[in-house]
Amino acid sequence: DTFTFTLDGIEVRLHGASEELIKTIEELLKRDIRWEELEKWIREWEK
């Protein structure tokens, strides 16, 4: 599955994202998160 969203005018596609990761990103997007914050968060998630 591919999860697609737009952040700061950039279309982002995550391939093979888990349901948990998708739900977490959706929550972060509701908080009007900035790209830099999401990028940092995703790097931490990957560890």
Rank of each mutant, 00 (worst) to 15 (best):
D1F: 11
D1W: 03
D1C: 10
D1R: 08
D1S: 06
D1N: 12
D1K: 08
T2F: 08
T2V: 13
T2H: 09
F3G: 00
F3E: 01
F3Y: 14
F3R: 00
F3S: 00
T4C: 08
T4F: 11
T4M: 12
F5I: 14
F5E: 02
F5H: 03
F5Q: 02
F5Y: 01
T6A: 05
T6P: 03
L7M: 05
L7K: 02
L7Q: 02
L7E: 02
L7A: 04
D8T: 01
D8I: 02
D8S: 02
G9N: 03
G9H: 01
I10D: 02
I10R: 05
I10T: 05
E11A: 03
E11N: 03
V12I: 13
V12P: 00
V12D: 00
V12R: 02
V12C: 07
V12S: 00
R13G: 05
R13V: 15
R13M: 14
R13W: 08
R13Q: 15
L14C: 04
L14D: 00
L14N: 00
L14M: 11
H15P: 08
H15Q: 10
H15M: 09
H15E: 15
H15G: 05
H15V: 14
G16W: 06
G16S: 05
G16R: 04
A17E: 02
A17R: 02
A17F: 08
S18L: 03
S18N: 10
S18H: 05
S18P: 08
E19T: 14
E19R: 09
E20N: 09
E20R: 07
L21K: 03
L21G: 01
L21W: 06
L21I: 11
L21N: 04
I22T: 05
I22H: 02
K23I: 08
K23N: 12
K23A: 13
T24E: 14
T24K: 15
T24V: 12
I25K: 00
I25D: 00
I25W: 01
I25R: 00
E26Y: 07
E26S: 10
E26A: 07
E26W: 07
E27D: 12
E27C: 10
E27M: 11
L28M: 14
L28T: 03
L28E: 02
L29G: 01
L29R: 02
L29V: 07
L29W: 02
K30A: 13
K30N: 09
K30V: 12
K30F: 08
K30I: 09
K30T: 11
R31C: 04
R31V: 09
R31P: 02
R31G: 12
D32K: 08
D32T: 10
D32N: 12
D32L: 05
I33N: 04
I33Y: 04
I33F: 06
W35N: 01
E36R: 07
E36K: 09
E36A: 14
E37H: 07
E37N: 07
E37Y: 06
E37V: 08
E37I: 06
E37S: 06
L38V: 05
L38R: 00
L38S: 00
L38C: 03
L38D: 00
E39A: 09
E39V: 11
E39Y: 13
E39Q: 13
E39K: 10
K40G: 11
K40C: 06
K40W: 09
K40M: 11
K40F: 09
K40P: 11
K40N: 09
K40A: 12
K40L: 11
W41G: 04
W41F: 15
I42A: 03
I42G: 01
I42M: 09
R43N: 13
R43C: 10
R43D: 08
R43L: 11
R43E: 10
R43P: 06
E44D: 13
E44Q: 11
E44M: 08
E44H: 10
E44W: 08
W45H: 10
W45D: 03
E46G: 11
E46N: 12
E46S: 09
K47D: 12
K47L: 12
K47R: 13
K47H: 14
K47A: 12
